[in-house]
Design a protein around this nucleic acid. Structure first.
Lengths: 111, 111
DNA sequence: ATGAATGGTTAGTTTTAGCTAACCGTTAGC
DNA sequence: GCTAACGGTTAGCTAAAACTAACCATTCAT
């Protein structure tokens, strides 16, 4: 049913600087919405919308505590991102090797 | 001199779906601009602009081969991204543990 | 020397997405 | 009951970013 892949959602979510700020605020531990919005240069409404995007990307979770909504970092989105990055690792290393060889070759050629 | 951090640039770069498509095309190996643009639903001009953003984020490198520009995946941006994600790993695991405990507790309570 | 291939840049348009303001529902405390 | 605190949603505006079209420079082949 979910047409979009999790890594797409996660990268899209962390592509926005305000959402990164929110996500990074949760680095130290769970927070309520008012605490998240505190200090940020946008309204609480904007924060709510960002939280929705982060939640759909499985980068955060929410648990209700009375009238408070407590948000925490979720490993599911993090795992998706890590797996995504790992796809490119071998290729990047190979390119690095080739670059090193080329540089070395040129160094030898240069009179 | 560089005011923006590398992980900010990288996350911003991969936040766009077209740039992700381009980046993923390089997964299998280096490509010239025309080969990258081939099959993509945008003009070569747009591709050029996206390549610039990816290059500035150190996610790709370029080497000139005559009239061709050959682009490859660069480990530098990947490392920056991996380090960024690692910051949140401990916190995410802790939240996961707490969630597991809470769920377990509620399971016991439920008559 | 001429033409074709490659690709970077810029101006200007269009689309997207982040934002505010206003509103509404729920819960907690008095 | 009433009120305050908390937070999710929607409509509409705005600013950012993606895109196209046009142009230019360079390299290679004939």
């Amino acid at each position: 049913m979910n047409a979009l892949k999790l890594d797409d959602l996660a990268l899209n979510a962390l592509g926005d600087p305000t959402r990164r700020s929110i996500f990074e605020k949760l680095e130290k531990g769970p927070l309520s919405v008012v605490h998240i919005a505190d200090g940020l240069p946008v309204t609480r409404s904007a924060v709510s919308q960002h939280l929705k995007v982060l939640k759909e990307a499985r980068l955060i979770t929410m648990k209700q505590e009375g009238t408070r909504s407590i948000y925490s970092i979720n490993q599911e989105g993090l795992i998706a991102l890590r797996n995504y990055l790992d796809r490119f690792w071998d290729e990047a290393l190979e390119n690095f090797k080739q670059l090193a060889e080329t540089t070395e070759k040129q160094k030898t050629i240069k009179k």
